[in-house]
């Protein structure tokens, strides 16, 4: 094959135009970019709060640090919960339609979204525990009472119910989030099964 032949092939090659309308692509990208920016902003705020909390912990104002850490964690969880609920609602709306192509598109997108959300929620548990341990460690180093920190924290009668209540709220929210995710996943499997059945029946015909 000569270079001229390749040039001819190149001409055929570039006849292929867009598969997606540029305006539609731009709109979708705009939504995704805005979401990325929002998440980046939330991440920064969360990090800033964590840094402030650690500084306050180092200054031995434990209660304030607990409120800040607890507050930001709960806010993050509520955000996750709201997003999971939004996904589930969107999915319900979609399944009432009958467009095969749209459904295939949506299931692929939702699988990716759920994966991110799951990673986020499951990531909160170890990071919260690690954060708490680190906080206690820092307080312990400053007070020279590393071994007694946990005992002191639990022995603080005024603080204990608050800690327990916070823990219960966090675990309830986490539980609901995970439950919603599981339900959404089951929904996806159901849709995929339906799609496979439809495709099979089309092939049979």
């Amino acid at each position: 094959m000569t270079d001229n032949d390749m040039d001819a092939l190149s001409q055929i090659w570039i006849t292929k135009k867009n598969e997606v309308d540029a305006t539609e692509l731009k709109t979708k990208l705009k939504t995704r970019i805005n979401r990325i920016k929002l998440f980046a902003l939330m991440e920064r705020i969360f990090t800033l709060c964590a840094v402030i909390a650690v500084i306050i912990l180092m200054a031995n104002i434990r209660e304030l640090a607990t409120y800040i850490l607890g507050g930001t964690t709960i806010l993050a969880l509520i955000g996750g919960l709201a997003y999971a609920e939004k996904l589930r609602n969107e999915l319900n709306t979609v399944t009432t339609g009958d467009a095969h192509k749209l459904l295939m598109d949506m299931t692929n997108q939702y699988r990716a979204k759920i994966k991110y959300l799951e990673a986020g929620i499951y990531g909160i548990i170890p990071s919260t525990i690690l954060g708490a341990l680190l906080g206690m460690f820092i307080v312990g180093v400053n007070d020279n009472q590393r071994k007694e920190v946990l005992t002191n924290a639990l022995g603080d009668i005024a603080g204990l119910p608050l800690i327990l209540l916070g823990g219960v709220i966090i675990f309830i929210l986490l539980g609901v989030c995970i439950l919603l995710l599981r339900r959404t996943k089951e929904h996806l499997v159901h849709i995929e099964t339906q799609l496979s059945l439809n495709t099979d029946s089309l092939e049979d015909e």
Partner: peptide, 9 residues
């Protein structure tokens, strides 16, 4: 084609 659209994004 559907995966291609996602990849495009």
């Amino acid at each position: 084609i559907e995966i291609r659209k996602d990849l495009m994004q």
